[in-house]
């Protein structure tokens, strides 16, 4: 038996219309870019440092007036195995993804998912209150909400003149 994922119209003959090919091409490009940026980020100077671990979860981050919201894709991870720690200007998400079928041992013919430990340190755009953080895991997505530290609000600085 052979397990061949079909990706192009030509190889499958299953789909019709040129959009399938375009969509597949776009998917491939997305995967290439995602792979490049998420897995080789230690080489990217504008990305945060990687502490330990073999893979990095992808994140989204947004900022509202009083909060910073971070969302990380962590499919297949027991929430008990996720550790979220916060310092004033940094959020660290670490943990381990265990392979459920590792116990059965043999038979894997194809693997694409990441397993093992991961740790990602994310610099925050503003200082936050480490005591005021919530983290929630749902359907493979970790959502962290951080409250900005009141002292981080912008202040008007008076400009003095020399006498």
């Amino acid at each position: 038996m052979s397990l061949i994922p079909f990706r192009t119209k030509r190889s499958s003959g299953m789909e019709s219309g040129s959009l399938t090919t375009l969509a597949d091409f776009r998917n491939e490009m997305n995967r290439l870019f995602e792979g490049f940026f998420s897995r080789t980020s230690p080489a990217s100077p504008w990305f945060e440092t990687v502490e330990t671990g073999q893979w990095l979860p992808a994140i989204d981050m947004s900022e509202s007036e009083k909060q910073i919201h971070v969302r990380a894709e962590l499919p297949g991870i027991d929430p008990k195995d996720v550790d979220v720690s916060v310092s004033e200007d940094r959020l660290v998400i670490s943990g381990e993804k265990k392979s459920e079928k590792e116990a059965t041992g043999e038979g894997w013919s194809h693997r694409e998912s990441h397993y093992g430990g991961f740790s990602r340190a994310i610099p925050l755009p503003e200082s936050v209150d480490p005591a005021n953080v919530t983290a929630r895991y749902d359907k493979g997505v970790l959502m962290v909400e951080l409250t900005k530290s009141p002292t981080s609000a912008s202040r008007k600085v008076p400009v003095l003149t020399a006498k």
């Binding site: 038996m1 397990l3 994922p5 990706r7 219309g17 959009l19 375009l22 969509a23 776009r26 998917n27 997305n30 995967r31 894709e73 962590l74 499919p75 297949g76 459920e100 079928k101 059965t104 038979g107 894997w108 013919s109 194809h110 693997r111 694409e112 998912s113 990441h114 359907k139 493979g140 997505v141």
Partner: peptide
């Protein structure tokens, strides 16, 4: 025909003899 972007999930495939197991990451 293609209103949104579609993505290919990462998939692990395991042939256990009596069955084939596919494990796909589709968070969210």
């Amino acid at each position: 025909a293609e209103p949104n972007l579609t993505y290919q999930p990462n998939v692990d495939i395991c042939d256990l003899g009596a069955e084939v197991l596919l494990v796909a990451d589709i968070p969210g």
